[in-house]
Design a protein around this nucleic acid. Structure first.
Lengths: 230, 230
DNA sequence: GTTATTAATTGACAAATATCAATTATCGGT
DNA sequence: ACCGATAATTGATATTTGTCAATTAATAAC
């Protein structure tokens, strides 16, 4: 289960460097007074699709996955690393979560009352602009994912997922893939067995090295080509 | 080609009933002074993915499709009917269109300067809240579509598309499908031939009647079942 | 350390879907 | 009403992908 603890305040927090940079100290105080800190173990669910959504979450350490629970399978929308906030579209619609979130690695997060958030959204246009900019970037990313998953074949989708992991999430090239093969499959819209098979193919072709969870993209040009040709 | 004409003003326009209801008359004047009206023939492109996006568009008559141009194929994100605005995520990111828009039926629209829009977004929290609410609804819809296209088989996807057309777009049950079979395929993420075949199957099973472009969902319960079982 | 449990892997096969080619129907412009 | 161009339809086939079952590897709990 999640463990609760109250820590120091928002004013000193590194989260400030993120979306909160536009906030005045008064506004930071408001956030600070309406939040609490939680930690999650790897595998724990942070919140579940369909449940009420009274907070937004700011991930301070660890790694989380956001995923839609579909018909028997999950679809991973994105991975979230520190320091990034998680705030779904339900906040302004029905106050429900429209996707679930789970900790992939041991994680800590701040939960902040949505009411305070919305209040600041209405009074601070810079913050509001920045927030809209961020959800717009997520939407654009969703579009790319949409095209990848609906129009590319499996090799192209895995290539896209590998670049996503290497470039956006772990930001290294030999990287330790802390998500499971099933997660990789859920991120690429295919069965776990297919994902594994394609990793193996890429390995056999010398494009990728696979040692357990340590992946190394050996030939990015070739992998990019696979991503484009689908 | 698109024909331009200046018409009466926003204050009397039925668009007011939509997102603009939160605007003061001063703000409506600002919009009114920074807009122009355009008409499009069926098939004409309204704007193209990748081009600069200096306006937002409010569809006043007709029907439009919003679609991502992928690798050889298109993916229709949504259909837009009057009175609805079209404003992509690029506005707050890179000032580019991230999808294309085309008129499916003869259409007219108002183009409004984005700068005026953003100005009002910053000064009118009610308007801003309403706008965020709307893009959130679109995001939620995209999620549903995402699940439909990535986790359901063709029958389920066509079922979803048929309900979308009947319930959301044409709002009738025997309805005239003004989009082409190719568009239906682009909306369901499959080849045109497959889309046609499934329409035929549904027809043979007595669930749907198909007479040219007049479609009639004869057995909604059964079709809903197909949607759910995938 | 040992064992129980879960994750990863592999192969064989079945199902779903796209592609290609060939017709047929439909529609806008004479 | 006729003609050319485009859209819709159909069938045959190849490709892609998932499913199932069996095995091996890795991990966590004792």
């Amino acid at each position: 289960m999640a463990r609760f603890k109250q820590s120091n305040n928002c004013v000193d927090c590194k989260c400030k460097s993120s979306i909160f940079k536009a906030l005045s100290s008064t506004e930071l105080d408001l956030i600070n007074n309406n939040r609490y800190e939680v930690s999650f173990r790897a595998g724990e669910m942070m919140f579940k699709q369909g449940t009420p959504s009274p907070h937004f979450l700011c991930l301070t350490t660890g790694l989380a996955k956001l995923y839609i629970e579909g018909y028997g399978k999950n679809l991973i929308l994105s991975l979230v690393k520190p320091v990034e906030y998680i705030l779904g579209p339900g906040i302004y619609v029905d106050n429900r979560h429209h996707y679930s979130a789970s900790a992939v690695e041991d994680s800590t997060a701040c939960l902040v009352d949505v009411t305070s958030f919305k209040q600041i959204m209405r009074s601070n246009p810079d913050f509001s602009d920045e927030f809209i900019r961020r959800i717009s970037i997520m939407t654009i990313f969703n579009f790319e994912q949409f095209i990848s998953l609906t129009q590319k074949q499996m090799n192209g989708r895995i290539a896209d997922a590998l670049f996503y992991l290497s470039d956006q999430i772990y930001e290294k090239n030999p990287f330790e893939m802390t998500i499971s093969r099933q997660d990789l499959a859920d991120l690429s819209g295919m069965s776990k067995e297919s994902a594994i098979r394609i990793l193996k193919e890429l390995k056999d072709e010398g494009i990728l090295s696979v040692n357990g969870n340590i992946l190394h993209i050996l030939n990015p040009q070739q992998l990019k080509k696979i991503s484009i040709t689908g």
